[in-house]
Design a protein around this nucleic acid. Structure first.
Length: 305
DNA sequence: GCAAGCCTGACC
DNA sequence: GGTCAGGCTTGC
């Protein structure tokens, strides 16, 4: 599952392989993975050079320069309501099973290949594949990108301890849900949320607003440490994730609780348990992460109408 | 049946 | 406004 470390790994791969190159032909095989109109997307992205790469949380933005003169003239840019041909961004959200890979254009098409973008030089292309099609590609203006990024919470590796503690204040519900909420903190998904809570020895049902200062500090440190280590190891490949060269990540052997329910805790030997919190399987060690006196309220039952 | 990111909408 | 369930989706 691509979370922040996996997206950062993809970004670094793109920086090495795609930065500075022009995108030429764009082919959308499945419009479902395109946010908005697929034709506009293809026209908007084609014939532009990759100028920079940015990331916030799990969102990856490929900055594209103004389109080439010839191509722009041929495509009636600026006609009608179309925006002026300035810089734009190719925004990528990988969802659960989205992958960006750079391969020779002649390489056989893997199943679920939804978008192909040829790279200048003719020999290679960037491909977007996504079995579950939860991911989305989008062409957006700088203003739109600013809007999208500003609605997301601070990037998890960047947030200071003070800011982190302040953000927890007054929050109800379960800390697990809080960690997964991208409007509060961006970058954590189910894997690293569970791992960070284990490392900080905090029960996933603990209430954010009731964490004591040392607990908040431990959690902040755990989040930073785990993300940093996972980036160094190029992410976790639980099932699908690969980087742009098709290589899996190396963090999986370091997982302490995620998908280990029923197995003994590597720290204390107690059996790892699993609960559903915020709709997600949540793995924790009852020995290392004792249930606090006051936890989040159990989910209220929906009353039938 | 379960996995999970993200969006929408319901509920308080 | 905050919080959370539901739905999307395919492979194991």
């Amino acid at each position: 599952m691509p979370e922040l470390p996996e997206v950062e790994t993809v970004l670094r791969g793109l920086r090495a392989r795609v930065l500075g190159r022009r995108l030429t032909e764009v082919v959308v095989h499945n419009a479902l993975v395109i946010h908005g109109d697929a034709e506009r997307f293809a026209e908007g992205v084609a014939h532009r050079r990759v100028e920079a790469l940015r990331r916030k949380g799990k969102a990856l933005a490929i900055e594209l320069g103004a389109p080439d003169g010839d191509a722009a003239a041929g495509r009636v840019i600026g006609a009608g309501s179309r925006g002026t041909p300035g810089a734009c961004f190719l925004l990528v959200r990988l969802g659960m099973t989205g992958q960006l890979v750079v391969v020779p254009r002649a390489a056989s098409l893997e199943p679920h290949t939804h978008v192909r973008i040829a790279l200048e030089g003719g020999a290679e292309e960037l491909r977007y594949t996504d079995a579950r099609r939860f991911g989305r590609l989008r062409c957006c203006s700088p203003a739109e990108l600013d809007g999208i990024f500003s609605r997301m919470g601070p990037d998890a590796p960047e947030i200071s301890e003070a800011e982190f503690s302040r953000a927890l204040r007054g929050r109800r519900g379960a800390i697990k849900g809080w960690l997964l909420n991208q409007q509060r903190l961006s970058g954590l998904g189910n894997i690293y949320a569970d791992e960070a809570l284990f490392a900080a020895r905090i029960h996933p049902l603990a209430q954010p607003g009731r964490l004591r200062a040392p607990e908040a500090r431990r959690l902040h440190r755990a989040v930073q440490k785990i993300l940093k280590r996972a980036i160094e190891l190029q992410g976790t490949s639980f099932r699908d994730y690969v980087d742009i060269e098709g290589r899996p990540g190396n963090f999986a052997p370091r997982l302490r609780v995620y998908q280990r329910s029923g197995a003994p805790c590597r720290r204390c030997g107690k059996t790892i348990r699993r609960l559903i919190i915020a709709g997600r399987g949540s793995h924790f060690c009852p020995g290392c992460q004792p249930r606090p006196r006051s936890t989040a309220q159990p989910t209220r039952k929906k009353t039938p109408r």
